[in-house]
Design a binder for these strands. Structure first.
Length: 429
RNA sequence: GCCGCCGUAGCUUAGCUGGUGGAGCGCUCGGCUGUUAACCGAGUGGUCGUCGGUUCGAAUCCGACCGGCGGCGCCA
């Protein structure tokens, strides 16, 4: 039994082979049937003719519809008329699982394909994306393993918000109210006092009615928290991490990137270090380009687009005004009106993929910021506790893994980066 | 939450200055021994999103509702 990809080799030519898969294309021309067979590794043409396979097998090949699963044995031939230059001359054709009329045909709208996602996953495009996605997760874990991190797990059911603004999904919890986590950051901070360097890969949930090409209500979140380091060192870790993943995808998924028509040179040209820009300088730069930007307003989609179009590699935007960032970010001792934080913006207009920074580690400073933001300290009692018993300077970040896949694969909308995307409307399939 | 847009056959759509709904793909049948999302012939398929209004007459005009899409805000 051979995988389809392995058949594209001189060593099998004129030899007996056997392979199996699903019918990707089917056409007949008189007494010969052409089948394009697909498996997880690729596609190959199979020709079925009556005098080669006999009446019975020929009839099952004739009745087999798109996406039928089949086992074929025969002779591998070189033939320039076949796509890819090789084809299988069938001697035996076994229909394993019949396929009814496959609902996905030539014309397909975005929405229809989302409704049919459980079947559309088989498409060459989705298969390529899923392979890239698999590599991204693999090299993400690989990076942390190499750098000596511990992987930890935080709860998905939580009792309150990490930050005030975001909307939480409420779920009934034995007569009480619970919420689905929107970030594991606070829990990660609890682990650093024993494990020092920790990370987690888990879903986060946001009940925002966002309708943009980069928002989902459920997304895969990689978060890390590191003891004893500051904002600058955190950024260096992150850029190494992104480079490691990029290298992994470029090494393992060239074929998939090509199939997706990704401009690979744009990824290959990225080198360390990434760009760094002060928030204040962005505002100045924005004014020069004619954007309506005031110091103290958060960067909107237009601004991010303008910035990320300008640069060929990812850009850290650092030192945001503290008012527009959550209370736990540490104000810069040199200039307490800004915080020691960073957002990482992916190039080519993709925008924010990471948010991170240094956390306040002083008890009084944290209480002060909670008070300024008019939050209730009781809601953060165990988080505040961490500043009472041997607090240390520390930093962390959150990476939107789906957004990373979205950018690397060069996709139009984040929903293509995720097998079963969830947004305010979509819960099926 | 705000601003735009769209619902016609299984899918993709034309018809929208009102006068009995057309096409391509799919599917069924037939033809072809080299097709490349093949081609040729025949057939199949529609309470035009729902309800109401205007009119002699509504897919078409008006209103409400339902469903969806794109963008902004929010963020990963």
């Amino acid at each position: 039994m051979q995988k389809i990809k392995d058949l594209f080799s001189e060593k099998f030519v004129d030899n007996e082979i056997e392979t199996r898969g699903w019918i990707y294309r089917w056409r007949e021309s008189g007494k010969i049937i052409f089948i394009i067979l697909r498996d997880s590794t690729g596609i190959i043409q199979v020709t079925v003719s009556k005098d080669m396979v006999g009446e019975e097998d020929f009839n099952s090949a004739k009745s087999a519809g798109i996406e039928s699963s089949v086992i074929v044995s025969g002779i591998l031939k070189r033939d320039e008329r076949a796509p890819g230059g090789f084809e299988v001359l069938a001697k035996k054709f076994v229909l394993v699982g019949k396929s009814l009329n496959f609902p996905i045909t030539k014309d397909k709208s975005d929405e229809f394909l989302l409704d049919m996602r459980h079947l559309w996953l088989r498409s060459r495009e989705m298969t390529a994306i899923l392979k890239i996605r698999s590599t991204v997760f693999e090299f993400l874990h690989d990076f942390f393993k190499r750098e000596g991190y511990y992987e930890v797990q935080a709860p998905m059911f939580v009792s309150s918000a990490v930050e005030g603004g975001s909307t939480l999904f409420e779920v009934p919890y034995f007569g009480r109210k619970a919420y689905l986590t929107q970030s594991s950051q606070f829990y990660l901070e609890t682990f650093i006092f024993s494990l020092e360097n920790v990370y987690t890969v888990a879903p986060s949930f946001r009940a925002e009615k966002s309708r943009t090409r980069r928002h989902l209500t459920e997304f895969w979140h990689c978060e890390a928290e590191v003891a004893w380091i500051g904002n600058d060192e955190m950024m260096k870790i992150e850029e190494r991490m992104i480079m490691h993943i990029l290298d992994g995808v470029l090494k393992n998924n060239k074929e998939e990137l090509i199939l997706l028509k990704r401009d690979i040179s744009k990824l290959e040209d990225i080198t360390l270090p990434f760009n760094r820009m002060e928030y204040a300088d962005i505002i100045k730069l924005g004014k020069d380009v004619g954007l309506d930007l005031d110091y103290g307003s958060d960067l909107g989609a237009d601004e991010e687009y303008a910035i990320t179009q300008k640069f060929e590699k990812p850009t850290f935007v650092i030192h945001f005004p503290k008012e527009i960032k959550p209370f736990y970010h540490r104000p810069d001792p040199q200039n307490p009106s800004v915080v020691l934080n960073h957002d990482l913006l992916a190039p080519e207009g993709y925008g924010e993929i990471i948010g991170g920074g240094e956390r306040i580690f002083d008890l009084d400073e944290l209480l002060q910021r909670i008070k300024e933001e008019r939050l209730n300290p009781e809601d953060y009692s165990w988080y505040i506790d961490l500043r009472k018993y041997g607090s240390v300077p520390h930093s962390g970040f959150g990476l939107g893994i789906d957004r990373l896949v979205w950018w690397i694969a060069g996709l139009e909308h984040i929903k293509y980066a995720v097998p079963y995307p969830r947004n305010v409307r979509r819960l099926v399939p």
